[in-house]
Design a protein around this nucleic acid. Sequence first.
RNA 1: GGUGAGGUGGCUGAGUGGUCGAAAGCAGAGCUUUGCUAAAGCUCCGUAGGCCUUAAAACCUACCGAGGGUUCGAAUCCCUCCCUCACCGCCA
Length: 424
Amino acid sequence: MLDIRQLREIPETVKTLLALRGPGLDELVDQVLAADSGRRANETRWQHLQAERKRLSKEIGARRAKKEDSSTLEDESKAMAVEMESLQAASGEAETRQRDLLLSIPNLPHDRIPPGADAAANPVLRTWGTPPTLENPQDHVALGTRLGLFDPERAAKLSGSGFICYTGPGARLERALLNFLLDLHTRDHGYTEMSPPYLVNRATMTGTGQLPKFEADLFGVSHGDLFLIPTAEVPVTNFHRDEILAADALPLRYVAYTPCFRREAGSTGRETRGLIRMHQFDKVELVKITTPENSAAELESLTSDAERVLQLLGLPYRVIELCGGDLGFSACRTYDIEVWAPGHGGWLEVSSCSSFGDYQARRMALRYKGADGKNHLCHTLNGSGTALARLYVALLENGQQPDSSVHLPEVLQPYFGAARLTPA
RNA sequence: GGUGAGGUGGCUGAGUGGUCGAAAGCAGAGCUUUGCUAAAGCUCCGUAGGCCUUAAAACCUACCGAGGGUUCGAAUCCCUCCCUCACCGCCA
């Protein structure tokens, strides 16, 4: 959520920055400002009336104590209540409207965001590793089927399309990856491990920005007003919602494994083949809560923590920065890490590392007490560290041998218990 | 799911209709006393919004789990819901 004061004071600057995301957002700004000024006028009037009423009530109490007549004052007070009620109704309506509008305005991009309308304009910042030379690379579906790692048909029987069931060594490889990632980030990178709920309420989903705008992307459950998390970012960032943290406790660095649940309505085809885009997938997520001064540096280190995963696994990757038109709703700056997938014949996004500035913190009233003794909004960041399914795809496709077996990176071997996957 | 007891400021804990945003204690900040330490004394110490404004203070309003209701007036009375604790039931 943006700061309403910022909108009041520098509306043109806000509109200019929002225009970097695309057209049409300046109307929302004007609507918020209209609701805001109407609300404030009503509230001011109401507060004056309320102050007068409180004065009257005290006077009534004093007169009654002295057994004097107070009926005139009581009538006066009752009469005021009529106007106050309509004022309150109007300002309540304006406040709801203002908040709804404000919640539907995306974050301001940071000041040096690359220009561009879509992913084609995202600049590549750096590339690491060398793609393997392969004669006729197979894709992960062919490899996985041959190796008996997963079973899409039976998974569809259980749950429908867009679900996978890992089997035997495939399930073991998933678990090996997950343990490797959690150990790396906790032991080497200093993150605190969390294991949060997978079902969260509406307030939590609103805190990180999924609601109210993106309810259609989420799975809900039929009992209670709960949603399946689309990423561990949601429960972990909201862990400190409505709190005032001590400055010396920052930065907080959390890592969490959770499954992620997404509707992904309407997406099918080459870009979603096999494990690439599913309704349920596993992910290890990194979350940071920091001060505004440190958030830029924390984004760089967060990204490098995620890159380290690919370096240790020996997987070629590149890092791109998202341009204004491709930036996610709540983010002000994002680096995507894309791994090379030779069977797929392209780059796959395995991590998205974002800074949210104070946008999420304002939504969830997440603050810290500064050296000045005052409360300030924190900055929040998160990034995948990394998505498991696409990492899995990259491991199979980059590690494949001419005989269809797959060589596993050395760091993974202790976790998996073998150096290669071979056909049964 | 059932029954019972509770939810008050960072913490403990008073407060059953009127000057209560809330006693007291603890923790925290500042000052004084003190050879040092320890201790004592004094002062300050919730959040959000509005108004005004360069900014702050002052001032006004709201907030005693949440939302409604009664009343001139609600932390206090009534209703609904949520949460915590205990026991029972159920269960990994």
